[in-house]
Amino acid sequence: MKKVWVLLLALLLALMAGCTEETSGGGSGPSTIQKVLDKKKLVIGTSSGYTPFEMKDKKGEFIGYDMDLGRAIGKALNVKVEFRDFEFTGLIPALQTGEIDMVISAMTIRGDRALAVSFSDPYYTSGQVILVPKSDTTTKSWKDLDQKGKKITVSQGSTSALLAKELFKNAEVLDFEGYTNAALAVKQGQADAVVGDEPAVRIYETRNSDSVRGIYELLSDENLGVAVQLNDYATINWLNSFLNSYRNGPEDQKAVNKWFKSNDWINEIQDEE
């Protein structure tokens, strides 16, 4: 029995000692952009289920505003693009361990995240709003809901979650896996509001207009960026140059019109009901 303990302890210590250095990630070795060009493949991590940024169509293909951006990046580099689906909280760890080359998942640029990964310049700007059950006809602002006993749902690890925990001092903030589950709890009347990016909330309202309504008072500005390994300056530099021509260019405008200004794409995705 004693031997087993010593062995276990030694194993743990070795694990701790060996791994602490690695987590700071990136910075050294060839840049991601060079590796992507060499292996002729770009692996993008995303967390699908966040309309209209990232979702899967009826055939299981990734579609959405972020996917269009990812494919445009692949086209510019002349490499194959592969999307991999993670839980939102798993994206940064996957990037740190090099399992994916970059994250495009409606990720807001924030100081705390930038200590773990580095961001490109913003490729889209949106804001946070709330969605309440239709049966709630009185709420006009998030402030009306900041009371004891109120339940606010969020997608775990998202900026909505971070923001809600800062803003709501009295209401309880509940973490769900993904925006879809967080919004579902509100739709069912099991919670009082969900916080999410304005485009996602608008689409959820369109699709569930009989049970929920959005309140379009902006809680914050959200600048979305592409995340790469910490201090991978060569890749950030290239992405910024790319975005300078892509943002508001013809391809981007086409994507904005398709995903944000119309609802035609809704037939492309699986129906939730």
Binding site: C19, T20, T23, F88, P93, L115, Q156, G157, A161, L162
Partner: peptide, 8 residues
């Protein structure tokens, strides 16, 4: 993990 990114 979501706030510190210290997964390991």
């Amino acid at each position: 993990v979501a706030t510190s990114f210290k997964a390991l």
